[in-house]
Design a protein around this nucleic acid. Structure first.
Lengths: 200, 200
DNA sequence: GCTGACACATACGTGCTGTATGTCAATACA
DNA sequence: TGTATTGACATACAGCACGTATGTGTCAGC
C-alpha cells in the first residue's frame, strides 16, 4: 500500500476534527484553545497547522463535516414525505430540529457565520441551502409554488427555520416552543403556494 | 450642580461607544483591540473597565444603542404604511434594508449573537423583535392574520428578513438581489394572512 | 542503503485581555 | 474655606493564546 502515510494523515485529521468539534460546541470557538484541542487528540499544534493552516481552517473543516451530516438528514426527511411540497416542509422541520442540538447551534449558527462570514460564501457552498433551493425550484416547475426566485425563497425559508431554532434552544421549555414554531412555520410557508386555479 | 461628574462620565461613555462601534463594525469584535478603541477615544483601558466592566460589556452597550436606532426606524416605516398589514411588511423591508449596512450586519447579526448569545436573551430584550411581535398580535386581534403564536411568527418573519439581508449584503449586485428578496418576502408573508371569509 | 520529502513536535516572540494598584480631581462636611 | 473621602480614570503587571520558525523522526524512490 502506497497509502500508509496518507492513511495516518487522515486519521490525525479525523482526530483533530473530532476534538475540535467537541471543544467548539461546548466552549465556543473563541474560548477553545488550540493547545487543549490538540492535547485532547493526543497531538500538538504542529499537526493542526500542517493539516488545517490555522484555527479558522480547523473550524471550516468542522463546519463542512456537520454540513454534510445535515444534508443527509434533510434528504432523509424529504424522502419520507408523501408529496414534494410536504417534503419541503419536512426539510424545514428537520432543519429546526437539528438546530436544537447545541453542537449545530453553536458551531453552524453562531460561531461559523461570525468567524467565516456568510454561510452562502463558504467553500462547501452550504449544501443545506442548495438542497432547499432545488426543492423549491422543482415545486415552481411543477406549478405548486408561485413563480419567484428559488434561491430567495430558500434563503427566507431557511432563515425562518434558523431563527425558530435559536429561539427554541434558548427557551425554558424547548418542546412546547418547538410545537408553536413548527406550526407557525407551516403556516408561513403556505405563502409560497400558488392559489388554486391560478393561470401560473 | 451635582452632575458635573455624571456629565463627564456620560461623555466618556459616549466617546467609548462611538469608537467601539466604529472598530467593531470595520474590524469585527475579535480583531478590535481595547487599546486601539480607547486610544481612539482619547482614553485608556481603565476607563473602559470602569464603565463597561470589560469588552463584552462594551459590545452590549453598542448593541443596545444600535437596537434603539433600529426600532426608531421600524416605527417610522410602519407609520408610513396605509394599513396595519402593510405596516408589518414595511417593517420587514426596513429591517432588510437596515441589515444591509455593514455596521448592523457585523455587530447585530454576526458578532452580537456569537459573543452575547441569543438576541432574545439580551438584557434590552431585543426591542426590534418585540415590535414585530406586537404588530402581529394586533393583526391577529383584528382578524387579519391567522390565530397563531405572535412571538413565533415574529421570530420567523424576522429570521427570514435577517437571512435575506445577509444574502443581499454578500451578493455581487446587492440592488438586484434586494428586489428579489423583498418580493419573496412579501409573498412568503402572505402565508400568515387569514383566508378570506374564514370564520376565525 | 542512502537521500529527499513530508508529517509532526518544540521553542520562541508578539499581542491582547483582565486585574491590581496608583493618582488626581470633585464633592461633602466642619 | 480647608480638609477628608469618594470615585473616575491611568499605569503596571501577569497570564494566556496565537502564529512562525526551526528541529526531528519516519516513509517512499533510486
Amino acid at each position: 500500500m502506497a497509502t500508509k502515510r496518507a492513511q495516518m494523515m487522515e486519521e490525525t485529521r479525523a482526530k483533530l476534527i473530532r476534538a475540535a468539534r467537541q471543544a467548539f460546541a461546548t466552549k465556543g470557538y473563541a474560548a477553545a484553545s488550540m493547545d487543549d484541542i490538540t492535547a485532547e487528540a493526543g497531538l500538538t499544534r504542529g499537526a493542526l497547522y500542517h493539516n488545517f493552516g490555522g484555527k479558522k481552517g480547523l473550524l471550516q473543516a468542522v463546519v463542512d463535516q456537520i454540513d454534510q451530516e445535515m444534508v443527509t438528514r434533510m434528504l432523509a426527511a424529504q424522502a419520507r414525505a408523501a408529496s414534494r411540497w410536504d417534503g419541503l416542509l419536512e426539510e424545514g422541520v428537520a432543519y429546526i430540529e437539528m438546530a436544537l442540538e447545541p453542537e449545530v447551534q453553536r458551531i453552524m449558527l453562531l460561531d461559523g457565520p461570525a468567524v467565516l462570514g456568510d454561510p452562502s460564501q463558504w467553500p462547501n457552498q452550504n449544501a443545506c441551502l442548495q438542497r432547499t433551493a432545488q426543492t423549491i425550484q422543482a415545486l415552481i416547475d411543477e406549478g405548486t409554488v408561485k413563480p419567484l426566485d428559488a434561491e430567495a425563497a430558500a434563503r427566507l425559508i431557511n432563515g425562518a427555520a434558523l431563527n425558530a431554532a435559536l429561539w427554541i434552544a434558548a427557551a425554558d421549555e424547548p418542546r412546547a416552543v418547538l410545537a408553536k414554531a413548527v406550526e407557525a412555520f407551516r403556516q408561513l410557508a403556505t405563502g409560497l403556494l400558488k392559489p388554486k386555479g391560478d393561470a401560473g
